[in-house]
Amino acid sequence: MSQTFPVDSAVELAVVERSGFVESRHAGAAIVLSPEGATVRALGAVEEPILPRSCMKPMQALGCLTAGAPLDGERLALATASHTGTERHVAVVRDILESAGVDESALACPSAWPEDRASRDALVRELLGPERVYMNCSGKHAAMLLACRTNGWDTDGYLDPAHPLQVHLRDLVERLTGTRAAATAVDGCGAPVYAMTLSALARATQRIGMSSARSPFALHRAAGLLVHAVREHPWAIQGEGMPDTMAAARLGVFAKSGAEGVCVMVAPDGTTVALKMLDGGNRAAAVTALALLTRTGALPAAQVSRVIAELPLTVSGGGQKVGVIRPTV
C-alpha cells in the first residue's frame, strides 16, 4: 500500500506552548529551494510521497487555463482557491458557471457550509443550508466545468481519472513535477489528487510562482497570468484574515495551503518552501513556512512578524493568552 513517510523520518517543525510548558509538537518534513532551484534546506523525508491536497490547485487551475478555459482576474484566482464561501467568492464561482452554461447542480463537489462564520450565520438566519457552491473547492470545480464546455467534453463524470480533462491535468502535473504520480487518490472534493514528493511539489510550485506573463513560452505565460491574478486579488485565494490571503496581500508571497498540514509558498524572489505536517494539523503550517522563508533571507523579518502577529496562533486559558504556536525550524 502506498503511504506517506513514517514518524521516525519526520523532524520537529513547530511546538505549542502553554504557560511556558511545551504541550504539543508538530513533526513533519519541509524543503526550501533557492530562486535557482537548489535545495537550501531539507528537513525530514522530502523525497517520500505525500498527497498535496489543495496545494495541487495551482497546477489544476493552470491545466484548465491551458485547456482553453477563458479565465482571468478574479475568476482565475478563484479557480486556484480554497475559499471561505463569502458572498463575494460565491458570486465569482457563479459567474464562471454561467460562462460555462451550467448551473450549480453540475458541480460534483459535496455540499458544504461556508467556512466564513458571518456568511454561515447569514444562511442560518435565512433558513438556508449547505450547498455545493459554498464548498471551498467550488471555484476549482467551476473552472473544470468551463474547461470541459470549452473543449466539447462531457461535463458528466468530469472527475473520473479517465475523463479527457483529468488526463490533461495529470499530464500537466507530471510535466511540472518532472515525475510520475506515485499514486492516485480521491481528494476531499472528489477530484483526483496525485501523490508526489515534497521536493517535486516544491519544484512544480516554484515553476508556476516564478513564471512571467511576458514569457515566450505559452505554459509560462499562462502560469504568469495565474500568479498575477492571485497577487492582484488576494482575497479570492482564501479569505480576509486567512494565512494565504495575508501572505499574498502583505508580503507578495504566492501561497497555497492544503488539507492535512500541507503548505507551499513562493517568495517574490522565487525562494520556495513546501512542507507537510505529519499529524495532518494545519494550525502551524503557514507560520512554519513563513519562518523558513524568513530565515533564508527571502522575506523581511519585521514585515513577517507583523503578519504572524495577526494569525490565529494564540493559546488561551481562562479567556486569557497563556501561550503560542511557534515554529522551531
Rank of each mutant, 00 (worst) to 15 (best):
G85E: 05
L107Q: 00
T80M: 11
F21L: 13
M59C: 11
G252F: 09
D171I: 05
A185V: 15
A223P: 00
Y194G: 09
D72E: 15
L97S: 08
G28H: 02
L159I: 12
V167L: 15
K57E: 10
C137R: 09
L293Y: 08
W153G: 00
I237L: 03
M144K: 07
T150N: 02
K321W: 14
R18D: 07
G297Q: 03
G319P: 05
T294M: 02
A191K: 08
N151S: 12
Q206G: 12
H220A: 15
S138K: 00
H83W: 11
G44V: 01
T205Y: 10
A202Y: 10
R18E: 06
R175Y: 10
R283N: 10
Q238K: 12
V186M: 13
V173I: 14
T272H: 04
L311F: 02
L13V: 04
P300S: 13
V173T: 14
V307L: 12
A213W: 05
A200V: 01
I237Q: 06
G323M: 13
S215P: 01
V322Y: 10
H89F: 10
P110H: 06
A298F: 05
S211R: 01
V230E: 00
G318D: 07
G209S: 15
E36S: 15
A147P: 03
G188C: 03
R283Q: 11
A286K: 00
P52R: 09
P192L: 02
L13W: 01
T314I: 14
R326Q: 06
L176I: 12
R221H: 12
Y158W: 12
V329M: 11
G44W: 00
A118C: 07
F21K: 15
S257M: 09
G44R: 02
A255T: 05
H168C: 01
G139I: 04
R283E: 07
A204I: 09
A274Y: 04
S215D: 10
L278E: 07
T84M: 03
L176T: 08
I308G: 07
A185F: 14
A29T: 00
C109M: 02
M265G: 01
L226V: 12
G318E: 09
A143W: 04
S316V: 15
S82M: 12
D171L: 10
L293D: 03
A112P: 11
R283D: 11
D279V: 04
A291E: 01
G209H: 11
H220M: 15
V315R: 10
K140V: 01
A302G: 14
A10D: 03
Q206P: 08
V102C: 10
S2K: 15
S257K: 08
A106I: 06
A42G: 14
V11P: 02
S19H: 14
S212Q: 05
R94Y: 06
M59V: 09
E12M: 09
L146D: 01
I208S: 02
Q60K: 12
G152Q: 00
K256P: 01
G37Q: 13
K321H: 14
P70Y: 10
A118L: 13
W153I: 01
D121W: 07
A183K: 10
G241H: 08
A200P: 00
P58W: 11
T271D: 05
V93M: 09
T4E: 08
P6F: 07
L165M: 10
C64V: 05
S212W: 05
A236E: 14
P327F: 00
L169C: 02
R53Y: 07
A248F: 04
R88N: 15
L293I: 08
V324I: 13
A222E: 07
L13N: 04
